[in-house]
Design a protein around this nucleic acid. Structure first.
Lengths: 238, 238
DNA sequence: CGGATCATTGAACCGCCGGTCAGAAACGGT
DNA sequence: ACCGTTTCTGACCGGCGGTTCAATGATCCG
Protein backbone atom coordinates (compact mmCIF):
# COMPACT_ATOMS: atom_id res chain seq x y z
CA UNK A 1 0.00 0.00 0.00
CA UNK A 2 0.94 3.64 -0.25
CA UNK A 3 2.69 4.96 -3.32
CA UNK A 4 3.01 2.10 -5.77
CA UNK A 5 6.28 2.20 -7.66
CA UNK A 6 6.28 3.38 -11.22
CA UNK A 7 5.83 0.16 -13.20
CA UNK A 8 7.70 1.45 -16.23
CA UNK A 9 10.60 2.96 -14.35
CA UNK A 10 12.93 0.01 -14.54
CA UNK A 11 12.48 -0.69 -18.19
CA UNK A 12 12.76 2.98 -19.01
CA UNK A 13 15.97 3.19 -17.06
CA UNK A 14 17.41 0.08 -18.64
CA UNK A 15 16.55 1.29 -22.12
CA UNK A 16 18.08 4.68 -21.43
CA UNK A 17 21.09 3.02 -19.87
CA UNK A 18 21.75 0.79 -22.85
CA UNK A 19 21.44 3.77 -25.15
CA UNK A 20 23.90 5.74 -23.04
CA UNK A 21 26.31 2.82 -22.69
CA UNK A 22 26.22 2.26 -26.41
CA UNK A 23 26.90 5.91 -27.09
CA UNK A 24 29.67 6.59 -24.60
CA UNK A 25 30.81 3.21 -23.38
CA UNK A 26 30.09 1.67 -20.02
CA UNK A 27 32.79 3.63 -18.28
CA UNK A 28 31.99 7.08 -19.62
CA UNK A 29 28.22 6.97 -19.54
CA UNK A 30 27.00 9.00 -16.59
CA UNK A 31 24.24 7.86 -14.27
CA UNK A 32 22.75 11.31 -14.23
CA UNK A 33 22.38 11.36 -18.01
CA UNK A 34 20.65 8.01 -17.91
CA UNK A 35 18.15 8.99 -15.25
CA UNK A 36 17.52 12.30 -16.93
CA UNK A 37 16.80 10.56 -20.22
CA UNK A 38 14.37 8.31 -18.38
CA UNK A 39 12.75 11.29 -16.68
CA UNK A 40 13.85 10.31 -13.20
CA UNK A 41 16.26 11.50 -10.59
CA UNK A 42 19.74 10.19 -10.06
CA UNK A 43 18.82 8.30 -6.92
CA UNK A 44 16.07 6.43 -8.73
CA UNK A 45 18.69 4.46 -10.58
CA UNK A 46 19.79 2.79 -7.38
CA UNK A 47 16.26 1.78 -6.53
CA UNK A 48 16.43 -0.62 -9.44
CA UNK A 49 20.07 -1.52 -9.86
CA UNK A 50 22.90 -2.32 -7.54
CA UNK A 51 25.36 -0.34 -9.59
CA UNK A 52 26.07 0.84 -13.10
CA UNK A 53 27.81 -2.42 -13.94
CA UNK A 54 24.95 -4.44 -12.50
CA UNK A 55 22.49 -2.59 -14.72
CA UNK A 56 24.47 -3.40 -17.81
CA UNK A 57 24.90 -6.91 -16.48
CA UNK A 58 21.14 -7.44 -16.75
CA UNK A 59 21.01 -6.21 -20.29
CA UNK A 60 24.08 -8.18 -21.28
CA UNK A 61 22.90 -11.38 -19.65
CA UNK A 62 19.60 -11.14 -21.48
CA UNK A 63 21.19 -10.53 -24.84
CA UNK A 64 23.77 -13.26 -24.42
CA UNK A 65 21.13 -15.64 -23.21
CA UNK A 66 19.15 -15.09 -26.37
CA UNK A 67 22.20 -15.80 -28.44
CA UNK A 68 22.91 -18.93 -26.45
CA UNK A 69 19.38 -20.16 -26.96
CA UNK A 70 19.69 -19.74 -30.70
CA UNK A 71 22.98 -21.53 -30.55
CA UNK A 72 21.49 -24.51 -28.73
CA UNK A 73 18.66 -24.74 -31.20
CA UNK A 74 21.14 -24.71 -34.02
CA UNK A 75 23.22 -27.42 -32.44
CA UNK A 76 20.20 -29.60 -31.84
CA UNK A 77 18.99 -29.16 -35.36
CA UNK A 78 22.38 -30.08 -36.73
CA UNK A 79 22.72 -33.06 -34.44
CA UNK A 80 19.32 -34.44 -35.44
CA UNK A 81 19.97 -33.93 -39.09
CA UNK A 82 23.42 -35.42 -38.96
CA UNK A 83 22.01 -38.52 -37.37
CA UNK A 84 19.41 -39.10 -40.05
CA UNK A 85 22.01 -38.26 -42.66
CA UNK A 86 24.36 -40.86 -41.27
CA UNK A 87 21.56 -43.41 -41.22
CA UNK A 88 20.71 -42.68 -44.82
CA UNK A 89 24.35 -43.03 -45.80
CA UNK A 90 24.48 -46.51 -44.31
CA UNK A 91 21.75 -47.83 -46.51
CA UNK A 92 22.94 -46.44 -49.78
CA UNK A 93 23.28 -42.89 -50.93
CA UNK A 94 21.96 -39.85 -49.12
CA UNK A 95 19.15 -38.19 -51.00
CA UNK A 96 19.35 -34.66 -52.30
CA UNK A 97 16.63 -33.71 -49.86
CA UNK A 98 19.02 -34.22 -46.97
CA UNK A 99 21.37 -31.73 -48.50
CA UNK A 100 18.59 -29.24 -48.90
CA UNK A 101 17.66 -29.86 -45.28
CA UNK A 102 21.12 -28.82 -44.14
CA UNK A 103 20.82 -25.69 -46.18
CA UNK A 104 17.43 -24.90 -44.75
CA UNK A 105 18.68 -25.19 -41.20
CA UNK A 106 21.69 -23.04 -41.97
CA UNK A 107 19.56 -20.35 -43.45
CA UNK A 108 16.95 -20.41 -40.78
CA UNK A 109 19.48 -20.32 -37.96
CA UNK A 110 21.52 -17.63 -39.65
CA UNK A 111 18.49 -15.47 -40.15
CA UNK A 112 17.45 -15.85 -36.54
CA UNK A 113 20.92 -15.06 -35.36
CA UNK A 114 21.08 -11.93 -37.44
CA UNK A 115 17.64 -10.94 -36.27
CA UNK A 116 18.69 -11.31 -32.64
CA UNK A 117 21.86 -9.41 -33.34
CA UNK A 118 19.77 -6.62 -34.75
CA UNK A 119 17.48 -6.49 -31.75
CA UNK A 120 20.38 -6.48 -29.34
CA UNK A 121 22.76 -4.43 -31.41
CA UNK A 122 23.29 -1.78 -28.78
CA UNK A 123 24.19 -4.27 -26.11
CA UNK A 124 26.50 -5.97 -28.56
CA UNK A 125 28.04 -2.62 -29.31
CA UNK A 126 28.85 -2.11 -25.65
CA UNK A 127 30.24 -5.61 -25.32
CA UNK A 128 32.33 -5.09 -28.42
CA UNK A 129 33.76 -1.65 -27.89
CA UNK A 130 32.51 -0.13 -24.69
CA UNK A 131 33.30 -2.53 -21.91
CA UNK A 132 37.07 -2.44 -21.67
CA UNK A 133 38.23 -2.52 -18.12
CA UNK A 134 34.96 -3.95 -16.79
CA UNK A 135 33.94 -7.45 -15.90
CA UNK A 136 32.27 -7.74 -19.31
CA UNK A 137 35.25 -7.03 -21.47
CA UNK A 138 35.70 -10.63 -22.50
CA UNK A 139 32.11 -11.79 -22.75
CA UNK A 140 31.50 -11.17 -26.41
CA UNK A 141 34.97 -12.15 -27.52
CA UNK A 142 34.92 -15.42 -25.65
CA UNK A 143 31.60 -16.18 -27.25
CA UNK A 144 32.96 -15.38 -30.68
CA UNK A 145 36.04 -17.51 -30.16
CA UNK A 146 33.87 -20.40 -29.10
CA UNK A 147 31.63 -19.83 -32.11
CA UNK A 148 34.56 -19.82 -34.49
CA UNK A 149 35.68 -23.10 -32.99
CA UNK A 150 32.22 -24.60 -33.20
CA UNK A 151 31.89 -23.60 -36.84
CA UNK A 152 35.23 -25.18 -37.57
CA UNK A 153 34.08 -28.45 -36.01
CA UNK A 154 30.75 -28.45 -37.73
CA UNK A 155 32.58 -27.89 -40.96
CA UNK A 156 34.80 -30.88 -40.36
CA UNK A 157 31.68 -32.92 -39.87
CA UNK A 158 30.42 -31.80 -43.24
CA UNK A 159 33.69 -32.49 -44.90
CA UNK A 160 33.42 -36.01 -43.54
CA UNK A 161 29.97 -36.21 -45.08
CA UNK A 162 31.33 -35.09 -48.39
CA UNK A 163 29.32 -31.91 -48.23
CA UNK A 164 32.37 -29.68 -48.33
CA UNK A 165 35.74 -29.79 -50.02
CA UNK A 166 38.45 -31.72 -48.30
CA UNK A 167 41.52 -30.01 -46.94
CA UNK A 168 39.71 -26.87 -45.88
CA UNK A 169 41.42 -24.83 -43.17
CA UNK A 170 38.36 -25.27 -40.99
CA UNK A 171 39.46 -22.98 -38.18
CA UNK A 172 40.15 -20.22 -40.65
CA UNK A 173 36.66 -20.61 -42.02
CA UNK A 174 35.35 -20.22 -38.50
CA UNK A 175 37.19 -16.96 -38.04
CA UNK A 176 35.99 -15.82 -41.42
CA UNK A 177 32.35 -16.41 -40.68
CA UNK A 178 32.50 -14.94 -37.21
CA UNK A 179 34.53 -11.97 -38.37
CA UNK A 180 32.00 -11.23 -41.05
CA UNK A 181 29.18 -11.31 -38.53
CA UNK A 182 31.10 -9.11 -36.21
CA UNK A 183 31.56 -6.42 -38.81
CA UNK A 184 27.95 -6.80 -39.77
CA UNK A 185 26.87 -6.25 -36.17
CA UNK A 186 29.04 -3.19 -36.04
CA UNK A 187 27.50 -1.77 -39.19
CA UNK A 188 24.04 -2.25 -37.76
CA UNK A 189 24.72 0.10 -34.91
CA UNK A 190 24.29 3.38 -36.65
CA UNK A 191 21.56 2.17 -38.96
CA UNK A 192 18.18 3.77 -38.43
CA UNK A 193 16.05 0.98 -39.73
CA UNK A 194 16.51 -2.72 -40.09
CA UNK A 195 18.44 -3.68 -43.19
CA UNK A 196 17.55 -6.57 -45.45
CA UNK A 197 18.95 -9.31 -43.26
CA UNK A 198 17.77 -11.97 -45.66
CA UNK A 199 19.89 -10.49 -48.38
CA UNK A 200 22.88 -10.70 -46.09
CA UNK A 201 22.18 -14.29 -45.15
CA UNK A 202 21.81 -15.38 -48.74
CA UNK A 203 24.80 -13.42 -49.93
CA UNK A 204 27.06 -14.79 -47.24
CA UNK A 205 25.90 -18.32 -47.80
CA UNK A 206 26.49 -18.02 -51.50
CA UNK A 207 29.88 -16.40 -51.10
CA UNK A 208 31.05 -18.86 -48.53
CA UNK A 209 30.04 -21.85 -50.55
CA UNK A 210 31.02 -20.78 -54.03
CA UNK A 211 33.52 -17.97 -53.60
CA UNK A 212 33.97 -15.10 -55.98
CA UNK A 213 35.84 -16.81 -58.76
CA UNK A 214 34.17 -17.15 -62.14
CA UNK A 215 32.14 -20.29 -62.64
CA UNK A 216 34.45 -22.88 -64.21
CA UNK A 217 33.59 -23.45 -67.85
CA UNK A 218 32.81 -27.11 -67.61
CA UNK A 219 30.02 -26.97 -65.09
CA UNK A 220 26.56 -27.62 -66.44
CA UNK A 221 24.46 -26.17 -63.63
CA UNK A 222 21.92 -23.79 -65.12
CA UNK A 223 22.04 -19.98 -65.29
CA UNK A 224 25.15 -19.77 -67.39
CA UNK A 225 23.96 -16.44 -68.82
CA UNK A 226 26.53 -14.30 -70.57
CA UNK A 227 29.28 -15.11 -68.14
CA UNK A 228 32.43 -13.61 -69.55
CA UNK A 229 34.66 -15.71 -67.33
CA UNK A 230 37.88 -16.29 -69.14
CA UNK A 231 40.12 -18.64 -67.27
CA UNK A 232 39.77 -20.75 -64.19
CA UNK A 233 41.14 -17.84 -62.25
CA UNK A 234 40.45 -17.44 -58.62
CA UNK A 235 40.24 -13.90 -57.47
CA UNK A 236 40.94 -12.01 -54.36
CA UNK A 237 40.05 -8.39 -53.95
CA UNK A 238 41.49 -7.32 -50.69
CA UNK B 1 73.72 22.37 -21.70
CA UNK B 2 73.29 20.96 -18.21
CA UNK B 3 71.51 17.68 -17.71
CA UNK B 4 70.67 16.31 -21.10
CA UNK B 5 67.32 14.55 -21.18
CA UNK B 6 67.21 10.80 -21.15
CA UNK B 7 67.20 9.87 -24.83
CA UNK B 8 65.25 6.67 -24.29
CA UNK B 9 62.67 8.08 -21.94
CA UNK B 10 60.07 8.97 -24.52
CA UNK B 11 60.15 5.69 -26.36
CA UNK B 12 60.13 3.75 -23.11
CA UNK B 13 57.11 5.73 -21.99
CA UNK B 14 55.29 5.27 -25.25
CA UNK B 15 55.95 1.55 -25.26
CA UNK B 16 54.75 1.21 -21.70
CA UNK B 17 51.77 3.39 -22.47
CA UNK B 18 50.68 1.31 -25.42
CA UNK B 19 51.01 -1.82 -23.35
CA UNK B 20 48.91 -0.31 -20.58
CA UNK B 21 46.33 1.09 -22.98
CA UNK B 22 46.02 -2.25 -24.67
CA UNK B 23 45.59 -4.01 -21.37
CA UNK B 24 43.12 -1.71 -19.67
CA UNK B 25 41.82 0.60 -22.34
CA UNK B 26 42.72 4.22 -22.85
CA UNK B 27 40.37 5.40 -20.16
CA UNK B 28 41.32 2.99 -17.41
CA UNK B 29 45.05 2.87 -17.90
CA UNK B 30 46.71 4.93 -15.18
CA UNK B 31 49.54 7.32 -15.80
CA UNK B 32 51.31 6.16 -12.70
CA UNK B 33 51.37 2.57 -13.90
CA UNK B 34 52.81 3.66 -17.19
CA UNK B 35 55.59 5.73 -15.69
CA UNK B 36 56.35 3.06 -13.17
CA UNK B 37 56.64 0.45 -15.91
CA UNK B 38 59.02 2.79 -17.72
CA UNK B 39 61.02 3.35 -14.54
CA UNK B 40 60.16 7.04 -14.27
CA UNK B 41 58.11 9.26 -12.06
CA UNK B 42 54.56 10.30 -12.68
CA UNK B 43 55.49 13.84 -13.66
CA UNK B 44 57.95 12.62 -16.28
CA UNK B 45 55.07 11.61 -18.48
CA UNK B 46 54.13 15.24 -18.98
CA UNK B 47 57.63 16.17 -20.03
CA UNK B 48 57.01 14.18 -23.19
CA UNK B 49 53.28 14.27 -23.78
CA UNK B 50 50.61 16.89 -23.54
CA UNK B 51 48.17 14.44 -22.03
CA UNK B 52 47.27 10.79 -21.93
CA UNK B 53 45.22 11.12 -25.09
CA UNK B 54 48.02 12.94 -26.86
CA UNK B 55 50.39 10.12 -26.06
CA UNK B 56 48.10 7.55 -27.57
CA UNK B 57 47.53 9.95 -30.44
CA UNK B 58 51.18 9.63 -31.40
CA UNK B 59 51.09 5.86 -31.35
CA UNK B 60 47.81 5.73 -33.20
CA UNK B 61 48.88 8.20 -35.87
CA UNK B 62 51.99 6.18 -36.53
CA UNK B 63 50.15 2.90 -36.82
CA UNK B 64 47.41 4.32 -39.01
CA UNK B 65 49.98 6.03 -41.17
CA UNK B 66 51.67 2.72 -41.81
CA UNK B 67 48.39 1.18 -42.79
CA UNK B 68 47.65 4.10 -45.08
CA UNK B 69 51.01 3.75 -46.77
CA UNK B 70 50.36 0.10 -47.48
CA UNK B 71 46.97 1.03 -48.81
CA UNK B 72 48.41 3.57 -51.22
CA UNK B 73 50.94 1.10 -52.48
CA UNK B 74 48.20 -1.41 -53.03
CA UNK B 75 46.10 1.08 -54.92
CA UNK B 76 49.00 2.11 -57.12
CA UNK B 77 49.88 -1.46 -57.89
CA UNK B 78 46.28 -2.23 -58.84
CA UNK B 79 45.96 0.89 -60.95
CA UNK B 80 49.12 0.13 -62.90
CA UNK B 81 48.15 -3.46 -63.46
CA UNK B 82 44.63 -2.61 -64.49
CA UNK B 83 45.94 -0.24 -67.07
CA UNK B 84 48.20 -2.80 -68.70
CA UNK B 85 45.43 -5.35 -68.44
CA UNK B 86 43.04 -3.04 -70.26
CA UNK B 87 45.63 -2.42 -72.94
CA UNK B 88 46.15 -6.13 -73.42
CA UNK B 89 42.42 -6.68 -73.67
CA UNK B 90 42.17 -4.17 -76.50
CA UNK B 91 44.57 -6.05 -78.68
CA UNK B 92 43.11 -9.47 -78.22
CA UNK B 93 42.97 -11.64 -75.18
CA UNK B 94 44.67 -10.97 -71.87
CA UNK B 95 47.38 -13.49 -71.14
CA UNK B 96 47.32 -15.79 -68.16
CA UNK B 97 50.36 -13.97 -66.85
CA UNK B 98 48.23 -10.91 -66.21
CA UNK B 99 45.93 -12.96 -64.08
CA UNK B 100 48.85 -14.31 -62.12
CA UNK B 101 50.09 -10.76 -61.72
CA UNK B 102 46.86 -9.75 -60.02
CA UNK B 103 47.18 -12.67 -57.70
CA UNK B 104 50.76 -11.81 -56.89
CA UNK B 105 49.86 -8.26 -55.96
CA UNK B 106 46.97 -9.43 -53.85
CA UNK B 107 49.13 -11.82 -51.96
CA UNK B 108 52.00 -9.46 -51.49
CA UNK B 109 49.77 -6.64 -50.28
CA UNK B 110 47.77 -8.92 -48.01
CA UNK B 111 50.89 -10.30 -46.45
CA UNK B 112 52.27 -6.82 -45.83
CA UNK B 113 49.00 -5.70 -44.35
CA UNK B 114 48.89 -8.65 -42.00
CA UNK B 115 52.51 -8.07 -41.08
CA UNK B 116 51.80 -4.45 -40.20
CA UNK B 117 48.72 -5.47 -38.28
CA UNK B 118 50.88 -7.82 -36.29
CA UNK B 119 53.46 -5.18 -35.52
CA UNK B 120 50.83 -2.71 -34.45
CA UNK B 121 48.43 -5.13 -32.89
CA UNK B 122 48.37 -3.45 -29.52
CA UNK B 123 47.53 -0.06 -30.97
CA UNK B 124 44.88 -1.70 -33.09
CA UNK B 125 43.52 -3.35 -29.99
CA UNK B 126 43.12 0.00 -28.29
CA UNK B 127 41.50 1.51 -31.37
CA UNK B 128 39.17 -1.45 -31.61
CA UNK B 129 38.05 -1.92 -28.04
CA UNK B 130 39.72 0.55 -25.76
CA UNK B 131 39.03 4.00 -27.11
CA UNK B 132 35.32 4.43 -26.54
CA UNK B 133 34.51 7.92 -25.43
CA UNK B 134 37.75 9.38 -26.69
CA UNK B 135 38.59 11.25 -29.84
CA UNK B 136 39.88 8.01 -31.33
CA UNK B 137 36.79 5.93 -31.02
CA UNK B 138 35.96 6.14 -34.71
CA UNK B 139 39.42 6.03 -36.23
CA UNK B 140 39.73 2.31 -36.84
CA UNK B 141 36.10 1.82 -37.77
CA UNK B 142 36.09 4.61 -40.29
CA UNK B 143 39.17 3.09 -41.82
CA UNK B 144 37.53 -0.31 -41.99
CA UNK B 145 34.37 1.08 -43.53
CA UNK B 146 36.43 2.82 -46.16
CA UNK B 147 38.37 -0.36 -46.77
CA UNK B 148 35.23 -2.40 -47.20
CA UNK B 149 34.02 0.14 -49.74
CA UNK B 150 37.30 0.13 -51.57
CA UNK B 151 37.35 -3.65 -51.77
CA UNK B 152 33.84 -3.59 -53.15
CA UNK B 153 34.89 -1.18 -55.88
CA UNK B 154 38.01 -3.08 -56.75
CA UNK B 155 35.91 -6.18 -57.01
CA UNK B 156 33.54 -4.50 -59.44
CA UNK B 157 36.52 -3.65 -61.53
CA UNK B 158 37.51 -7.27 -61.62
CA UNK B 159 34.03 -8.41 -62.44
CA UNK B 160 34.17 -6.02 -65.39
CA UNK B 161 37.43 -7.67 -66.41
CA UNK B 162 35.81 -11.06 -66.20
CA UNK B 163 38.06 -12.07 -63.35
CA UNK B 164 35.20 -12.62 -60.95
CA UNK B 165 31.67 -13.93 -61.21
CA UNK B 166 29.01 -11.50 -62.23
CA UNK B 167 26.24 -10.50 -59.90
CA UNK B 168 28.40 -10.61 -56.79
CA UNK B 169 27.16 -8.55 -53.84
CA UNK B 170 30.37 -6.56 -53.93
CA UNK B 171 29.75 -4.54 -50.80
CA UNK B 172 29.02 -7.70 -48.86
CA UNK B 173 32.31 -9.14 -50.01
CA UNK B 174 34.00 -6.01 -48.72
CA UNK B 175 32.48 -6.46 -45.29
CA UNK B 176 33.39 -10.10 -45.35
CA UNK B 177 37.04 -9.50 -46.08
CA UNK B 178 37.36 -6.65 -43.61
CA UNK B 179 35.45 -8.53 -40.95
CA UNK B 180 37.74 -11.48 -41.32
CA UNK B 181 40.78 -9.29 -40.93
CA UNK B 182 39.28 -7.64 -37.93
CA UNK B 183 38.79 -10.90 -36.12
CA UNK B 184 42.23 -11.96 -37.15
CA UNK B 185 43.70 -8.80 -35.65
CA UNK B 186 41.79 -9.48 -32.48
CA UNK B 187 43.11 -13.02 -32.26
CA UNK B 188 46.67 -11.74 -32.64
CA UNK B 189 46.46 -9.75 -29.46
CA UNK B 190 46.98 -12.46 -26.95
CA UNK B 191 49.37 -14.44 -29.07
CA UNK B 192 52.90 -14.67 -27.76
CA UNK B 193 54.65 -15.18 -31.02
CA UNK B 194 53.88 -14.34 -34.59
CA UNK B 195 51.57 -16.85 -36.22
CA UNK B 196 51.99 -18.15 -39.74
CA UNK B 197 50.61 -15.13 -41.52
CA UNK B 198 51.32 -16.66 -44.90
CA UNK B 199 49.04 -19.53 -44.08
CA UNK B 200 46.28 -17.09 -43.30
CA UNK B 201 46.81 -15.13 -46.47
CA UNK B 202 46.74 -18.22 -48.63
CA UNK B 203 43.79 -19.74 -46.83
CA UNK B 204 41.71 -16.63 -47.08
CA UNK B 205 42.53 -16.14 -50.71
CA UNK B 206 41.60 -19.68 -51.49
CA UNK B 207 38.40 -19.56 -49.47
CA UNK B 208 37.32 -16.27 -50.90
CA UNK B 209 37.88 -17.32 -54.45
CA UNK B 210 36.61 -20.89 -54.37
CA UNK B 211 34.40 -21.14 -51.34
CA UNK B 212 33.94 -24.27 -49.29
CA UNK B 213 31.64 -26.26 -51.55
CA UNK B 214 32.91 -29.52 -53.03
CA UNK B 215 34.63 -29.22 -56.35
CA UNK B 216 31.97 -29.72 -59.03
CA UNK B 217 32.35 -33.09 -60.72
CA UNK B 218 32.81 -31.76 -64.20
CA UNK B 219 35.90 -29.67 -63.62
CA UNK B 220 39.06 -31.09 -65.09
CA UNK B 221 41.66 -29.10 -63.16
CA UNK B 222 44.20 -31.51 -61.68
CA UNK B 223 44.41 -32.83 -58.13
CA UNK B 224 41.14 -34.68 -58.13
CA UNK B 225 42.42 -37.09 -55.49
CA UNK B 226 39.90 -39.15 -53.61
CA UNK B 227 37.42 -36.36 -53.40
CA UNK B 228 34.27 -37.89 -52.01
CA UNK B 229 32.17 -34.98 -53.18
CA UNK B 230 28.71 -36.30 -53.85
CA UNK B 231 26.49 -33.64 -55.27
CA UNK B 232 26.95 -30.08 -56.40
CA UNK B 233 25.98 -28.98 -52.97
CA UNK B 234 27.08 -25.70 -51.60
CA UNK B 235 27.60 -25.71 -47.91
CA UNK B 236 27.38 -23.28 -45.13
CA UNK B 237 28.61 -24.05 -41.67
CA UNK B 238 27.59 -21.16 -39.56
C1' DC C 1 84.59 23.77 -7.04
C1' DG C 2 80.47 27.06 -7.54
C1' DG C 3 76.85 28.53 -9.92
C1' DA C 4 73.71 28.37 -13.86
C1' DT C 5 70.69 25.59 -16.27
C1' DC C 6 67.94 22.33 -17.16
C1' DA C 7 65.54 17.51 -16.47
C1' DT C 8 63.09 15.12 -13.04
C1' DT C 9 60.37 14.23 -9.08
C1' DG C 10 56.19 13.34 -6.39
C1' DA C 11 53.16 15.59 -3.11
C1' DA C 12 49.36 18.37 -3.61
C1' DC C 13 45.52 20.02 -6.15
C1' DC C 14 41.20 19.62 -8.38
C1' DG C 15 37.31 18.20 -11.09
C1' DC C 16 34.47 14.49 -11.86
C1' DC C 17 31.18 11.17 -11.18
C1' DG C 18 29.51 6.83 -8.54
C1' DG C 19 27.06 6.01 -4.82
C1' DT C 20 24.34 7.47 -0.24
C1' DC C 21 20.66 8.99 2.56
C1' DA C 22 17.84 12.43 5.08
C1' DG C 23 14.10 14.50 3.84
C1' DA C 24 10.06 15.51 0.49
C1' DA C 25 6.38 13.78 -1.97
C1' DA C 26 2.83 10.61 -3.27
C1' DC C 27 -0.47 7.40 -2.31
C1' DG C 28 -4.03 4.33 0.23
C1' DG C 29 -6.73 3.62 4.02
C1' DT C 30 -9.71 5.41 7.42
C1' DA D 1 -8.30 15.64 6.21
C1' DC D 2 -4.78 12.97 8.49
C1' DC D 3 -1.58 9.26 9.19
C1' DG D 4 1.35 5.52 8.00
C1' DT D 5 3.97 3.73 4.51
C1' DT D 6 6.68 3.40 0.62
C1' DT D 7 8.74 5.79 -3.33
C1' DC D 8 11.52 9.42 -5.13
C1' DT D 9 14.63 13.28 -4.92
C1' DG D 10 18.96 15.72 -5.20
C1' DA D 11 22.48 17.76 -2.23
C1' DC D 12 26.38 15.74 -0.41
C1' DC D 13 30.42 12.69 0.41
C1' DG D 14 34.53 10.35 -0.90
C1' DG D 15 37.79 8.35 -3.80
C1' DC D 16 40.11 8.20 -7.90
C1' DG D 17 43.32 9.67 -11.08
C1' DG D 18 44.84 13.37 -14.46
C1' DT D 19 47.51 17.30 -14.19
C1' DT D 20 50.57 20.87 -12.03
C1' DC D 21 54.60 22.97 -10.07
C1' DA D 22 57.82 24.05 -6.29
C1' DA D 23 61.61 21.63 -4.87
C1' DT D 24 65.40 18.50 -5.97
C1' DG D 25 69.31 17.02 -8.07
C1' DA D 26 72.09 16.11 -12.47
C1' DT D 27 75.11 18.02 -15.51
C1' DC D 28 77.92 21.34 -17.77
C1' DC D 29 80.83 25.37 -17.96
C1' DG D 30 84.17 28.51 -16.44
Amino acid sequence: MARPKDPHAKEALLAAAVRAFSQHGLQRARIEDITQAAGLSKGAFYLHFESKEAAFGEAAALAMHRMQVLLSERREAYAALEETFRAQLERGRAPAEAVAAFEAIDERADRQTLETMWENRHVIDVLMRGSRGTEFEGVLWDFLDAEAGRIGEELEQRVAFGLCRQGLPTQVVGSMVVGTWLLLARSMIDLKEKPDLDFWVRSLKELLSRGIAPIPRAVRLGTSKKVTGRTRTKRRAT
